[in-house]
């Protein structure tokens, strides 16, 4: 039983990271109805920024909690800017284009990042620096909780609360929800739709960057293609929770993290990557709107 709870805890910490990425997918989908394929790569870029910033600040030799926050903030801001640029340069000119064109562009942007990163950062895996001292472990009734997992939980919970605040307690959040209902009506009511879309991309990218740093710290190996699998799985989590639904994405991601962990521990570890896609196909066939999604009637 203790072992089982242990796996659940580990799975939750994995799921929390998925959740941070899934939020970006689900917010962009909610507002533009399209899958931002490049999102997983922004996550990768966030991790690399963390790598360079952490090494530049010399945190590997002197880990400190403040340094960690500086790196986190730096990576989130830079990735936010990159997210803004991607939207501005690649997606905005296609606002009126058929969706398939936007989709192809998104795939193109994603590949551009992946191979640009291979050129810029090198294709070999890099070891992420230790930002904070995470050698301690805590025990609660026999269940071991690493301090790394504590960091993951703390950061994700704080970020999600911040996002929740922005979405439901501020004017910007209200505008975002309005735009996701109807672009044209929002425009008529004086909401700067393009700016709101940009803000959505910036927020999503910043979240993904934070996830990148957390992954870098937990599994200290960076590769230019690391964003593909994480991105796809986070997307599956977002679909599972009901895409466009922010809280659903978090629940879906947590379930996904836990079930992956259980598959690895009790089932066949090599099929771990296939599980996410199998889950996706099953969800899409039997309940395409996901756990908490709304069904929309198709307009002719």
């Amino acid at each position: 039983m203790t072992e089982f709870i242990q796996h659940i805890v580990n799975g939750l910490s994995f799921g929390a990271i998925y959740a941070l990425i899934a939020l970006g997918y689900t917010m962009v989908y909610g507002i533009l109805q399209f899958i931002n394929f490049a999102h997983g790569d922004i996550f990768m870029i966030g991790a690399y920024i963390g790598y360079y910033a952490g090494n530049a600040l010399g945190l590997n030799d002197h880990p400190s909690i403040w340094g960690f926050f500086v790196v986190l903030l730096l990576s989130m801001v830079t990735s936010g800017v990159i997210g803004f640029l991607v939207e501005f340069l690649a997606y905005r000119p296609l606002r009126k284009a058929p969706r398939i064109n936007v989709l192809i562009t998104a795939v193109g942007v994603s590949l551009f990042f992946e191979f640009g990163a291979q050129m810029l950062f090198g294709a070999n895996p890099k070891a992420f620096p230790h930002l904070v001292d995470v050698s301690k472990s805590f025990y609660i009734g026999g269940v071991q909780i690493d301090s790394m997992e504590l960091v993951v939980f703390t950061v994700t919970i704080l970020l999600m609360l911040a996002l929740e605040f922005v979405l439901y307690r501020t004017k910007v959040g209200k505008a975002m929800r309005a735009v996701s209902h109807d672009h044209n009506v929002a425009l008529l009511l004086g909401i700067p739709v393009n700016m709101i879309i940009s803000i959505t991309f910036v927020l999503g990218s910043a979240m993904a960057a934070a996830a990148g740093i957390l992954v870098g710290m937990s599994y200290p190996k960076l590769e230019p293609l690391m964003g593909v699998m994480f991105g796809l799985k986070a997307f599956v989590a977002a679909v599972f929770g009901g895409i466009g639904n922010v809280r659903g994405a978090v629940v879906g991601a947590l379930i996904m993290g836990v079930s992956e962990q259980l598959i690895v521990s009790y089932g066949v570890p090599t099929f771990r990557d296939a599980f996410a896609f199998a889950l996706l196909i099953v969800v899409l066939i039997f309940r395409p709107k996901g756990l908490f999604g709304k069904t929309l009637a198709e307009k002719v």
Binding site: A90, G108, V109, L111, F112, F115, Q118, M119
Partner: peptide
């Protein structure tokens, strides 16, 4: 190996 970068750029530019 910038071929894939070229591919992806070509793809984006064509779409735009």
């Amino acid at each position: 190996d910038f071929r894939m970068i070229l591919y992806s750029l070509v793809l984006i530019l064509f779409m735009l």
